[in-house]
Nucleic acid binder design. Structure first.
Lengths: 155, 155
DNA sequence: ATACCTTAGTTGAAGCTTCAACTATACGTG
DNA sequence: CACGTATAGTTGAAGCTTCAACTAAGGTAT
């Protein structure tokens, strides 16, 4: 990183496009999931992560890291999902401070039922016009940025 | 787009990285601007767009399109910015339905004062580890996705 | 063992976004 | 010109996220 604090032209163009994506993509995904499944994107994301976890369960701390969110946000969401019968809280036998979120059968069913529509939306909105090289570039560049974001949050 | 509704492995990897970025980048930018300038990222974004506009003014409809947001969201934000003395509403002489948001001198000052810190954060979080080719790829791929999002919202 | 620091999680309040309902004005068509 | 419809914007309520304060438990050094 050089001393100049400003963005050059190429960076400005890239930044505008990136900002357009992250200002609108969440809304677009939200709309589809809300309409077709009555879920927020984040609720879906949390349940999808749980559905892939060992025993469909995970400590809230680990789940929050995986979902890129604060513990507080996750706790509120789990409360809502619990009310709807899709998740339960269980004490963690290994650490009494910790809580494990467990996906119920109903919750798993909900994920399975919502997934195709959601994945189709992701395909239609994100991948429809990308070729193999684009996908590879997207993974690489976002991976670099995500790693950076990682380091900035603990360092 | 082929008939298979699922994502292939490369797409899944790219999707996870992209999701990590758009789940965390807004929060990271928010934190910096809130701490250093007392602004939300979106408030900054709106004022920055106004600062570049002809006469530092724009119809709410046009500004909403530029900022990738709903008219309702923008209207609420403009109300808050108005309360703080950074923006004013004026009737549009050409269309009586329309309202023009105008950046005040205080608002312009606020943007000028907040910009360096914000741009530095964008550089540090997004561009620090990207080379020229990465930046070009980011612009290209995000441009394609943004165009897609465009078409999906009106079509 | 005690004192101190760190980590896990919860909770309520405040603030922002979304949604739906509403007003007002412009535009198009017969 | 009148009618129906589309567009611009506002507003209040409901819902979600963030923030700060708090409880509880683990770790560590003395």
């Amino acid at each position: 990183m050089d001393a100049n604090p400003w963005l050059d032209e190429a960076e400005q163009r890239a930044w505008r496009e990136l900002a357009a994506v992250f200002l609108r993509l969440p809304g677009a995904l939200e709309t589809q999931l809300q309409r077709d499944a009555g879920l927020s994107h984040f609720e879906y994301w949390v349940m999808a992560l749980l559905s892939e976890a060992d025993g469909r369960a995970r400590r809230l701390r680990d789940l929050a890291d995986q979902a890129n969110c604060s513990l507080s946000r996750l706790s509120h969401v789990v409360t809502r999902l619990e009310r709807r019968g899709w998740v339960q809280r269980h004490p963690d036998p290994d650490d009494a401070r910790s809580t494990r979120a467990v996906l119920t059968d109903a919750g798993y069913g909900k994920v399975v039922e919502s997934a195709p529509g959601h994945v189709a939306a992701v395909r239609a909105l994100v991948f429809a016009d990308l070729d193999e090289r684009d996908v590879a570039a997207l993974e690489r560049v976002c991976g670099i940025i995500a790693a950076r974001l990682d380091r900035s949050s603990d360092g």
